[in-house]
């Protein structure tokens, strides 16, 4: 176990270095720079001296290679640099924005699980019934509608026809006002959770169907066990392994920020932070946020791998 963990962590290092180089290079390959992003076409009105003075002011006059190494040096000490747009440490901005993203991700997962798992189970048990057909239809629709369209539709319907959704652009932290916070979170979470629920439902259904045809289920039944016990103890637990993987990966994505949904619903999360950082060519912020998202994703995958051991005792990471 310890050996496996160490191995996983060692493979992390080259991966993160690779990511850091890619991120650092990619944002610089994008045409335009912070000054053009700030000034737009007016940047062309600057004389050479004026431009040089601005570059020096924002610390952009250092050669890129030097910038990379000083950035990496800082990253190793936990300092992700300063956002030139906002004049604040990148770490502070991430800490500010991450709770909203985390909360949105958690609520979306809860919605997805509450809808997806029961629906998947019922659908598998009552295969080809009206319920199954409805559930499959729901899954198809849920997967086909992109969440940005669903988000816009939700805003449109709720605000125009019902006059609710009064909270755009005035995000309230959950520690400030839980009720208001939940009102703001529920609809974006629904927009994200619906398609997620659809994939959870489909995965649960197919996985349940597969498990139900296994020999040990037949054995359990022939032992005379109550059908409920068979389903709960024998079928469901085994059927959940692929679902856990799915939820883990999807949760990792969500923690990277739901870019479009955060943008539509004006939720100040990681996704919106990154979008703004990119359009403004705020290099340090883009690098810091992307690195954070990458680390998040990798760590979640690691956690998912370990969750298998809890669900299926046959899976171990001890040396043979």
């Amino acid at each position: 176990m310890v050996r496996y963990l160490t191995q996983r962590f060692i493979t992390l290092i080259p991966m993160l270095i690779g990511i850091s180089i890619m991120v650092f290079g990619a944002i610089r390959l994008v045409p335009g720079d912070f000054i053009t992003a700030q000034l737009g076409t007016e940047a062309g009105m600057l004389s050479d001296t004026q431009r040089a003075s601005l570059e020096a002011y924002y610390g952009l006059d250092v050669p890129p290679v030097e910038q990379y190494f000083s950035w990496m040096g800082n990253v190793l000490t936990g300092n992700l640099g300063m956002s030139i747009r906002q004049g604040r440490p990148v770490v502070d901005l991430i800490i500010d924005r991450f709770p909203a993203t985390l909360e949105l991700a958690i609520i979306s997962v809860i919605i997805a699980l509450l809808i997806g798992i029961p629906m998947g189970i019922l659908s598998a048990i009552y295969r080809n019934s009206a319920l199954d057909i409805f559930a499959r239809l729901f899954a198809m629709v849920g997967l086909s509608i992109p969440n940005f369209l669903l988000g816009t539709l939700i805003i449109f319907v709720l605000s125009v026809y019902f006059g609710i959704l009064p909270t755009s652009g005035n995000y309230v932290d959950l520690t400030e006002d839980l009720s208001l916070n939940l009102q703001q979170m529920i609809f974006p979470a629904l927009a994200l959770g619906t398609s997620f629920a659809s994939s959870v439902m489909r995965m649960t259904r197919s996985s349940m169907l597969e498990v139900m045809s296994e020999d040990y289920i037949r054995t359990a039944r022939s032992k005379g066990l109550h059908e409920r016990i068979v389903l709960q103890r024998h079928a469901l637990k085994n059927a959940m392994i692929p679902v856990v993987t799915l939820v883990g990966i999807e949760f990792g994505y969500l923690l990277g920020g739901a870019f479009i949904v955060e943008q539509i619903f004006a939720i100040p999360g990681i996704g919106r932070l990154l979008i703004n950082a990119i359009t403004q060519r705020d290099y340090a912020l883009v690098q810091g946020v992307t690195l954070f998202i990458a680390v998040n994703f990798v760590v979640i995958n690691l956690i998912v791998d370990f969750a298998y051991t809890l669900l299926d005792p046959r899976v171990t990471y001890d040396g043979r």
Partner: peptide
């Protein structure tokens, strides 16, 4: 001043009376 990145959402906020 509240920044609402999507203009359709600004319209919604106006109609809902929050701005």
């Amino acid at each position: 001043i509240r920044i609402i990145p999507d203009e359709a959402s600004i319209l919604a906020a106006l109609r809902a009376g929050t701005i």
